[in-house]
Design a binder for these strands. Structure first.
Length: 784
RNA sequence: GGGCAAUUGGCUCAGUGGUUAGAGCGCUUCCUUGACAUGGAAGAGGUCACAGGUUCGAUUCCUGUAUUGCCCACCA
């Protein structure tokens, strides 16, 4: 045996095996390899600087499963990709390169984005590799590369032909800061303090109608006043007109049940558009469209003297003017929540504009049914999916008035406005630089206006199964592989990535995208609070990897059940580190006593202690296998831990020592084989969770036992069946007796290694059978 | 307001329709024994949030309440 280092050092061991795995293509996907394919729709992380702890948490979860499946002999398709277009990427480039997209030449900005992504991606991905991810990193996709452009545009055309996408001028959620339309799923809530203003609208008899509003700057957009049909105070007013203060125009007073009698004065102004209810009323009552805010959030001509002001300043000025005219009769501070854009945290508006949409409202029921065809881990996560769909209020707006994204493969006829779609064989195209073939099909004109908008990044990431599969398969074969086996992801993007992928798969293939989904939780700080830069409680996985190693990080990650949020705990990571140390020390013990590891033959006759540990191992294998099958990696870890520490290390290793140091060669040999067999299986069981230390041990001591290059493509443990086994039905009593001896020594403050003269056992034990064993194990001269 | 989840020893969490509810950390006492002091042995510590109900029996099932967290709606 070669020299064994006393300590296990992950910082030396881990890079070595990472390199080995890559060089030997251990995780490389071969479509022709044997074994059924198990396909994973790996989440493409948004390229954003560095991997964060939440990534490390949820990605390792899927890696546990992938590694388990691989050892089960399945041909695991575990691709990798990065998401790097859209607003998130623009923001990253603006920040790191200190530029503003809106102030740059469009092409220059796109070039800068592409170039920057190329620069930072390898470094970004290396963190995933350091975390021990067993994806095939030899071929990865990016949601902005040519292949993704082509597939995404082609799919868009498919949607267009099937009439699942349409272009329409309609109210859409708008971010004035980013100056683009956004989707409902991109909203967040924020509590803000604001003023609730009681404003006087004059009626025809010069009487006052008080209206409460938080947004007086929209007065110029007021198109109606609504009251509740059952409101006695205002019943008579319905059908009359009210005069908008300052602006002087008259609007109709209408009745609608959506009005809350209790809120404000019970009378509400309807503006185009203040909120979603305004949009509903606009549609239902066919109200005029009067926009006061432009796309950058400034007041337009309609706002007359306020034109050109920002909404905020206009609000202040209008309030002052109302005060001067004595039309402001009340004001109170309230706290309410508003929708903000998740990317920039600014309040959103509703803007009427021309956008591309994907239909989703029409098929809500269908999407809920499709959700039921997918197996959810944990099952309750499906309720979140359904809850989201039930509450959907808008079709999916996919066009963005931005720069760095996949362009729509579309032009418009310069004469009649008819939509002209690109030819599929020309894809990918950019309508701004490429010209369409032929003439307008409607009017024969040959001048076209290119679509300037780009697609929402989710419009591309929602076809991730195709992006990933088409890296390795032709399009037809790729389609046959849908549904994929598994979509792993965290719960925060159920309403986006998960839902949108179901939508797209349904529209393109009339299939569910995957058979099963596994949903991970989030990482909170040690107090259970969200990690955020402003709170300064962010934990960098890179530091953990460096300090404790990947196996320790993964051990921590495996500690919580699927779907559960986890509190970050350095202690738990330390236990992971301890486990690698323990494994290493057991390996050293074995190596000191066993020249060359040999496995038990099934004809071998073992001793009771051996039979007992084999029996316990078999139970553990069964339970662990079942747990991994159900994505219950935490349960699997618990089973392996329990067996390894409490059965194998605490007892069996002690049981076998006297044989190793004794002179009964036959007994010694059987002990050697048993310890090797059991430990070999322990290493395999731990391999999906702790891939590095298990590989190190496997390569050092067990490699000759199986024809395989790596423990990670070795065979998953199976029950060990020996032809003849001693009866161990009473072995539990022997263990009890061992405990009793240990207790006795502890109480006497004697070291466990010290020999004592005699002990009288209270435990009923078959001394004829186990007397000698107990004497040796317990170091007692006489037992009665 | 709607949905989902959680509530078990000081802390973090497992767990089960049924004899004394488990683990790790922490704590106490002891042990340097030929894998490991980055260790080992023994031990203290819980009316399983609360209230009803189902049951021969509930921490486990049902209902309600409270508290906490997440998602969504409310934004006039």
């Amino acid at each position: 045996m070669k020299e064994i280092s006393k300590h296990y050092n992950p910082s030396e061991v881990e890079p070595k095996w990472r390199e080995f795995w890559e060089k030997n293509n251990i995780y490389k996907f071969d479509p022709k390899a044997k074994g059924g394919i198990f396909s994973v729709d790996t989440p493409p992380p948004t390229v954003s600087g560095k991997m964060h702890i939440g990534h490390a948490y949820s990605y390792t979860h899927e890696d546990f499963i992938a590694r388990y499946r691989r050892m089960r002999g399945e041909n695991v398709f575990f691709p990798f990709g990065t998401d790097n277009n859209g607003l998130a990427t623009e923001r990253l480039i603006e920040k790191t390169k200190n530029v503003r997209a809106s102030k740059m030449d469009r092409n220059d900005f796109i070039k800068l984005c592409n170039q920057t992504i190329k620069e930072i991606t390898p470094d970004f991905i290396s963190d995933w590799q350091k975390a021990g991810m067993s994806c095939d990193f030899s071929k990865i996709y990016s949601t902005i590369d040519d292949n993704s452009r082509r597939i995404s545009q082609k799919n868009f055309i498919d949607l267009y032909k099937k009439k699942y996408t349409y272009r329409q001028e309609a109210p859409v959620i708008w971010c004035s800061h980013c100056q683009t339309a956004i989707a409902q799923a991109e909203l967040e809530d924020k509590e803000i303090e604001t003023l609730f203003n009681d404003i006087v609208f004059k009626l025809k008899d010069k009487k006052d109608l008080i209206i409460a509003t938080t947004r007086p700057e929209l007065l110029s957009s007021c198109v109606a006043v609504f009251v509740h049909p059952d409101d006695k105070r205002y019943k008579k007013l319905v059908g009359q007109k009210a005069q908008v203060p300052i602006f002087g125009n008259k609007v109709e007073i209408l009745a609608d049940k959506k009005v809350d009698l209790e809120k404000g004065s019970g009378a509400v102004m309807c503006c185009t558009f203040g909120d979603k209810t305004d949009v509903e009323w606009f549609k239902e009552y066919k109200l005029p469209l009067v926009m006061s805010l432009d796309k950058s959030g400034r007041m337009m001509e309609k706002a007359k003297k306020y034109a050109g002001l920002s909404a905020k300043v206009a609000r202040q000025n209008i309030i002052e003017d109302l005060q001067k005219k004595k039309l402001l009769v009340g004001q109170k501070k309230i706290t309410h929540s508003v929708n903000i854009h998740e990317r920039c945290k600014n309040e959103v508006e509703i803007m009427n504009s021309l956008q591309w949409y994907i239909r989703i409202l029409d098929e809500k029921k269908e999407f809920i049914d499709l959700g039921k065809k997918i197996k959810w881990h944990p099952p309750f996560m499906r309720a979140r999916y359904e809850n989201w769909i039930n509450n959907l209020g808008w079709d999916w707006a996919i066009s963005r008035q931005r720069f760095f994204g996949i362009p729509f493969p579309v032009w418009y006829c310069g004469k009649c406005g008819e939509i002209k779609i690109a030819d599929i064989e020309d894809l990918p195209i950019d309508p701004l630089s490429d010209k369409p073939k032929g003439k307008c099909e409607k009017c024969g004109n040959s001048k076209f206006i290119p679509e300037k908008d780009v697609m929402d990044t989710w419009a591309t990431s929602s076809i991730s199964p195709q992006l990933a599969l088409q890296l390795f398969f032709d399009e037809k074969t790729a389609q046959k592989m849908i549904p994929m086996n598994l979509r792993p992801q965290a719960h925060d993007i159920i309403s986006t990535w998960l839902f949108y992928t179901v939508v797209r798969s349904h529209y393109h293939f009339d299939k569910i995208p995957w058979k099963e989904v596994m949903i991970s939780g989030h990482v909170l700080d040690s107090q259970g609070k969200k990690m955020s830069k402003s709170l300064g409680n962010v934990v960098a996985p890179q530091e953990i990897l460096e300090k404790y190693g990947s196996d320790a990080l993964r051990y921590w990650s495996a500690g919580s059940s699927l779907g559960q949020d986890i509190n970050y705990s350095e202690d738990e990571i330390k236990i992971g580190k301890k486990t690698t140390t323990k494994l290493w020390n057991v390996a050293r013990f074995m190596a000191m006593n066993v020249k060359k590891a040999e496995l038990l033959k099934d004809s071998e006759m073992v001793e009771p202690a051996d039979a007992w540990i084999i029996d316990e191992l078999n139970k553990t294998i069964a339970k662990t296998t079942k747990a991994f099958e159900n994505y219950a990696y935490a349960k699997a870890k618990e089973e392996i831990d329990g067996f390894f520490w409490s059965k194998f290390a605490d007892y069996y290793v002690e049981f076998v020592k006297y044989r190793f140091f004794g002179d009964d060669e036959k007994s010694k040999k059987i002990g050697e084989k048993t310890i090797a067999t059991v430990f070999f299986n322990i290493v395999k069981l731990y391999a999906p969770i702790m891939p590095f230390v298990t590989e190190e041990i496997f390569q050092t001591w067990f490699k000759h036992l199986e024809k395989t290059k790596s423990v990670h493509i070795s065979k998953w443990p199976e029950e060990i069946k020996l032809k003849k086994m001693p009866d161990i039905s009473d072995f539990a009593s022997a263990i009890k007796a061992v405990d009793e001896i240990r207790k006795h020594k502890t109480k006497q403050n004697i070291s466990l290694g010290a020999e004592i003269d005699s002990i009288k056992l209270k435990t009923k034990t078959n001394l004829k059978k186990y007397g000698e064993f107990l004497k040796k194990v317990g170091r007692v001269k006489k037992i009665s």
